[in-house]
Simulated scan of single mutants.
Amino acid sequence: MNTNEFWALIGEAARDGGTPDTVADRAATALARRDPSEIVGFERHLRRVLDASYKVDLFGAAYLVNGGCSDEGFDAFRGWLMVQGREAFARAVGEPDSLAELAAVRRAALTGEELGSERMLGVAATAHREATGEGLPEEPATKRPNTDDFWDFDDEDEVRRRFPRLAALFNEAPAE
């Protein structure tokens, strides 16, 4: 499975809308119809996407949007972000403050909804079990960055400097 096929499968599953978990279920169903090697390829690509997107500033943005964030919470946030599509995902990785443009993020600023989809991270495992009756072959764990590189996500001045649009949405006090 290549990059275009990976994102096309997610895009097709998201085409009719629904919750991120509904999209994940549709993606798993569609993926289960494919050859098991393609299912494994989807999982490998998902891991590459997760590795490439483990950026300190994206973690900080997830922390702001969700009112805190653990490693597992960041994984789930990126699962949710995948459902938003390739363009939104790539843009958020490069410019986390662009998340402020997404309707779901604006809604979360008003409602306190936490954005995440663990189910999206398990699409290949679900599809492989459905297609073969077996679990996915073991793969190396997703890389984790050195947390010493993290900045203080609770520092309001730093949050406003890095994410002015997100800070405005999430009612951070204006800079003096």
Score class of each variant (00 low, 15 high):
Phe89Cys: 10
Gly11Leu: 04
Arg161Asn: 12
Thr142Phe: 08
Gln84Phe: 02
Ala52Ser: 15
Leu169Phe: 05
Glu12Ile: 07
Lys143Met: 11
Ala92Trp: 00
Gly68Ala: 07
Glu134Asp: 12
Arg107Leu: 15
Ala92Glu: 02
Pro137Glu: 05
Arg44Asp: 09
Asn4Trp: 09
Phe153Ser: 05
Glu156Asn: 07
Leu50Trp: 01
Val123Lys: 01
Asn66Trp: 01
Phe150Asn: 08
Tyr63Lys: 09
Ala131Gly: 02
Pro20Ile: 02
Gly11Lys: 03
Ala14Cys: 05
Gly68Val: 01
Phe59Val: 03
Ala90Leu: 08
Phe89Lys: 05
Ala30Asn: 12
Pro36Gln: 12
Pro145Glu: 04
His128Thr: 06
Ala141His: 09
Gly122Arg: 14
Val56Thr: 03
Ala24Ser: 06
Asp57Tyr: 02
Ser70Leu: 07
Arg48Val: 14
Ala131Met: 01
Glu72Gly: 13
Ala30Val: 04
Arg119His: 12
Tyr63Val: 08
Thr22His: 03
Leu99Pro: 01
Phe150Tyr: 14
Asn2Phe: 02
Ala88Lys: 09
Ser53Gly: 11
Tyr54Gln: 06
Asp51Tyr: 02
Thr22Ser: 04
Ala61Ile: 02
Ala168Met: 09
Asn4Ile: 12
Glu101Asp: 15
Glu113Arg: 14
Glu114Lys: 15
Thr132Arg: 07
Val105His: 04
Phe74Lys: 01
Asp148Asn: 07
Glu139Cys: 04
Asn171Asp: 15
Asp97Gly: 13
Gly112Ile: 14
Ile10Phe: 02
Thr132Val: 11
Ala28Trp: 02
Met120Thr: 00
Ala27Asn: 00
Gly122Thr: 11
Cys69Glu: 12
Val40Leu: 14
Gly79Thr: 00
Trp7Lys: 04
Arg26Lys: 15
Gly133His: 09
Thr3Gln: 11
Pro174Lys: 15
Gly68Cys: 03
Phe6Val: 03
Arg86Val: 04
Leu81Arg: 02
Thr132Pro: 06
Gly122Ser: 14
Ala125Asp: 10
Asn66Glu: 07
Leu115Gly: 05
Ala92Thr: 04
Ala13Leu: 04
Arg160Pro: 12
Phe163Pro: 08
Leu121Trp: 02
Arg161Glu: 14
Thr111Tyr: 12
Thr3Pro: 02
Thr22Val: 08
Glu172Gly: 12
Ala104Trp: 01
Glu95Pro: 05
Val159Asn: 03
Thr22Gly: 03
Glu38Trp: 03
Phe163Trp: 12
Arg44Thr: 09
Asp75His: 12
Leu169Pro: 02
Glu130Tyr: 10
Lys55Leu: 08
Ala90Val: 04
Asp16Leu: 09
Thr126Met: 03
Trp80Met: 06
Ala103Val: 13
Arg78Asn: 03
Glu114Phe: 13
Ala131Pro: 00
Val40Asn: 08
Leu115Val: 10
Ala28Ile: 06
Gly122Tyr: 11
Pro174Glu: 15
Arg33Phe: 07
Ala173Glu: 13
Ala175His: 09
Tyr63Thr: 14
Asp157Gly: 12
Ala124Ile: 05
Trp80Asp: 01
Phe59Lys: 00
Pro20Met: 06
Phe89Ile: 08
Arg107Glu: 15
Ser37Pro: 02
Glu72Asp: 13
Gly41Ala: 13
Asp51Cys: 05
Ala127Gln: 10
